[in-house]
Design a protein around this nucleic acid. Structure first.
Length: 804
RNA sequence: GCGGGAAUGGCGGAAUUGGCAGACGCGUACGGUUCAGGUCCGUAUGCUGGCAACAGCAUGCAGGUUCAAGUCCUGUUUCCCGCACCA
């Protein structure tokens, strides 16, 4: 009898063997077929590994292990995305150096990941905070700068009035500071920006050729937010350039009864001598600037605004004079910062018109009384009160109006995007220094490439300064330098890069992590790129995924990488929730520590349960008793060693099960249907227990299929069975379709669609005979008595007798 | 408000192109092994009625298409996620 399975002993034994054998390291043999699976590299936090990490890691580990067994050269890498706020905040609190904190946290993460038996190539481990890594992050930034894609702009940042710290958007939750709950206001600062908007169209178009799950494609497209419309200029007396507006509904131009500009619109300053009520207008502008994010975005809030008295604007389509208002419901950051208001056919304009008693003119018929209800339908509306557009459908009218506007020189076709340029600076210490210096004579000057990396200096106090600058602003010695251009005294940039920088290209570094000449060699990139399969969280769809696609396209444009896109395939896992069905968090007290699970049940059980608990892409609550069920299965597999019979090969009665399971498991792994793959193996084991014995070859096949999920116990049993070749070096089994063909079929016999009997018949029996056998079945006969058989359908494994 | 996803037993979830709903696991009940069990083995387990054979009802709700619907169509409710005054 086998001893009770000791998971600690077996798992640590095999982890050591794998490490000594270097068997999971990618080979530099570029003639082999390659497979490059990728998980989002973790942020090494002080809390250690979370149960969410292993879900993605295990899923990709299964594929990595399977593909190795199929003969692929697999690059399954790991590293640390280690710059960022939690570490810096911890440093501020404790005084420990962020680099030291990062080092310790990474050590703990590494130890935890190794204990779970992931087949990472540890020889290629990277860390974004390592100067030899961020040298290349800085290099990419300089290239962007060189090509005019990085520029400095005065833009408002989130500023916590209580911590006196600039915050990233993600750190502002419901309009208040995530850390202290203090009020967050907008503070204008000079910031480095990256022109991601220049890539907007390509970021949409190139999605077509990628194997991304549909949700991701849709979210990216929505985030980029392309819209087609027209830019129309409204003449204004005393303002020669006129007031430009952007609209997607130029068909409604006849219904424009007023205009609105955003509080920041330059026309106010330009026309300050003409505007009669400047005091009132200035007061409104200031009030708008003071509003917090929360107030500005509050739903259903009352529209506010002030009429710009004295401005004389004209509707270009009918030369009617129309008033101009200022209101914060118009955003400076989108379109032209000014709109034509068509209250009859736009909800916001309608609300505003009702509040300020502006006229509402119907120009699209099809709705109810526009004085009572706004009508925005574009599918069935017909133009009225619109001169030459009268009688047209909305879509035709839009086309006709654009043609007319272009012909008269009053407007142009225009595509707009919601996507904004990427605010690329943070007023923080723990990030990549920006390799630019400011010279009084030469302006901003890039460091020469050979001076990279520009290393982050040692400082005493990581707290940002009172005016919201980075702590580096106090590192006076470091800041002082000379201009690389003219040699005069100059000052370094004190802001650092956001933590999205290092993660925007890390997969490239994995291809050639120790290269000190370039970010990775051409040969390595040509062989390994693109990433074949990238799995990660949906929360990264619009930020990390979009940013890294943008950087990659830029690198492609300058010839630094061989592919247009970084990732060929993108999938996503569902979040693991607490046992109570809520999101796991310390405050809810429902956090499951992976260490505890591994201690009690072992890594194999933990991995298996994370894959078995439910559909991979769905969020799912953790269940410790459910995990124990997987441990029971592991134990059952362990005890099978006492059931091995002397019979050679695969028993004929087991052929269909063995080959069916090989097929099912092989296909389900690739489709990320891990739960049903495991269920199929459980079914097989149940069958073996019912039979009371198993042959060595059957057992070996099961172990091979199970190995990617539960690599430790399967290797141990493989050894116990006497196989000298470890499973990781064993070929993945193949199935024989012929073995799946059954010589009999169990038909379900229905009468009027209701199942009445089951009948086992030879597979090659003719339909007429099947029909006859079904009709003659004792359980069926009573339902046919006194009825006329109108029709009989025999298909697949169903016989349906229709009677009436 | 807009966009996306989901709804199946006590629970997590399975169900090729429409083809025997509830695989697999958890939980529960009973039986067995054991000095013992938070062990193991076996049996049962959608609901209702019936001792039973069996019958009826069942995939959020209401209709429809079909020999046949969890799956397709129309309408509707609830929940989750993302975006949110984007003109």
């Amino acid at each position: 009898m086998a001893e009770r399975y000791d998971h600690d002993k077996v798992e640590l034994k095999w982890q050591k063997i794998w490490e000594d054998a270097h068997c999971f390291e990618a080979k530099n043999d570029y003639t082999m077929p390659k497979f490059f699976p990728l998980i989002e590299f973790p942020y090494p936090s002080a809390q250690g590994l979370h149960v969410g990490h292993p879900r993605s890691n295990t899923a990709m580990d299964i594929l990595a292990r399977k593909r190795r067994m199929e003969g692929y050269n697999v690059l399954y890498p790991i590293g640390w995305d280690a710059f960022g706020l939690p570490t810096e905040n911890y440093a501020i609190k404790t005084g420990a150096h962020p680099a030291k904190v990062t080092f310790e946290n990474a050590n703990r993460f590494r130890q935890q990941l190794k204990r779970l038996g992931f087949s990472f190539d540890w020889s290629r481990e990277i860390n974004t905070t390592d100067p030899s890594y961020y040298k290349w992050t800085q290099w990419i930034f300089l290239k962007l700068y060189e090509k005019g894609l990085a520029y400095k702009a005065e833009i408002p940042i989130n500023f916590c009035t209580s911590c006196k710290v600039g915050l990233a958007n993600e750190e502002v939750v419901d309009g208040v500071c995530e850390r202290c709950g203090g009020t967050v206001i907008q503070k204008v600062r000079s910031q480095w920006m990256l022109k991601i908007t220049e890539y907007a169209q390509r970021l949409i178009d190139d999605l077509d050729d990628l194997d991304f799950i549909e949700r991701v494609k849709i979210q990216q497209k929505n985030w980029i937010g392309r819209s087609e419309g027209a830019e129309i200029t409204f003449p204004i007396e005393g303002y020669p350039e006129g007031l430009k507006v952007y609209t997607t509904r130029c068909d409604t131009l006849f219904g424009a009864t007023y205009m609105v500009v955003s509080p920041e619109h330059p026309i106010v300053e330009a026309m300050k001598d003409t505007i009669e009520n400047m005091d009132e207008v200035r007061a409104y502008q200031q009030a708008a600037a003071r509003k917090s994010d929360l107030e500005r975005s509050e739903l259903n809030k009352d529209k506010t605004g002030v009429l710009l008295k004295g401005l004389k604007a004209t509707n270009p389509v009918n030369d009617q004079p129309i008033p101009v208002w200022i209101s914060d419901y118009v955003l400076m950051g989108y379109g032209t910062g000014a709109i034509m208001a068509v209250p009859a056919h736009d909800e916001r304009d309608w609300d505003f018109a009702k509040k300020f008693n502006m006229p509402i003119i119907e120009v699209v018929a099809g709705g109810r009384d526009v004085q009572e209800e706004v009508y925005t339908d574009v599918e069935s509306g017909i133009l009225v009160n619109s001169g030459f557009l009268n009688g047209m459908h909305v879509k035709d009218a839009i086309a006709a109006m654009i043609d007319w506007l272009e012909e008269k020189g009053l407007g142009t076709r225009k595509v707009n995007y919601k996507l904004r340029d990427w605010v690329f600076t943070r007023q923080r210490y723990w990030g990549e220094p920006i390799p630019l210096v400011n010279c009084e004579k030469c302006g901003w000057v890039p460091l020469p490439y050979e001076e990279l990396p520009l290393v982050l200096p040692e400082i005493e106090d990581y707290q940002p300064t009172d005016d919201g600058s980075s702590a580096l602003a106090r590192a006076t010695e470091w800041l002082k330098t000379t201009c690389p251009c003219c040699g005069a005294p100059a000052v370094r940039e004190a802001d650092t890069m956001p933590n999205w920088a290092g993660s925007s290209w890390y997969f490239l570094r994995y291809c050639d992590p120790h290269n000190d000449k370039e970010l990775a060699s051409k040969e390595a990139l040509e062989y390994w790129m693109p990433v074949d399969w990238y799995n990660g969280g949906m929360e990264h769809t619009t930020l990390h995924l979009l940013y890294s696609r943008f950087w990659h396209k830029f690198l492609y444009d300058i010839g630094a990488v061989p592919t247009k896109e970084p990732y060929q395939k993108r999938t996503s896992h569902g979040m693991i929730l607490g046992e109570n069905g809520e999101k796991m968090s310390k405050s809810r007290g429902n956090v499951v520590n992976p260490d505890d699970v591994v201690n009690e049940m072992g890594a194999d059980t933990f991995r298996m349960y994370e894959m078995f608990m439910g559909a991979f892409d769905q969020p799912i609550p953790w269940s410790t008793t459910g995990a124990r069920g997987c441990r029971r299965f592991i134990d059952r597999v362990w005890r099978m060693q006492d059931m091995v019979s002397d019979v050679e090969g695969i028993r004929p009665e087991m052929m269909a099960t063995v080959h069916g399971t090989i097929k099912k498991v092989t296909e389900d792994y690739e489709a990320m249907k891990y739960n049903t793959a495991i269920a199929a193996m459980m079914t097989w084991v149940n069958e073996i227990y019912n039979a009371g014995s198993v042959t060595k070859e059957e057992f070996h096949t099961l172990l091979t299929l199970l190995n990617p999920v539960a690599p430790h116990i399967t290797e141990e049993l493989n050894e116990i069975l006497g196989y000298t070749q470890p499973l990781y070096a064993t070929a993945w089994p193949t199935w024989d379709e012929n073995a799946l063909v059954k010589n009999s079929i169990e038909y379900g016999v229905q009468v009027n669609g209701k199942i009445r009997a089951r009948i086992e018949l030879p597979a090659d029996m003719a339909k007429e005979e099947v029909e006859a056998a079904a009709k003659a079945h004792a359980d069926v006969v009573p339902f046919l008595e006194g009825k006329t058989v109108r029709k009989v359908i025999v298909v697949k494994n169903i016989v349906n007798i229709v009677v009436g």
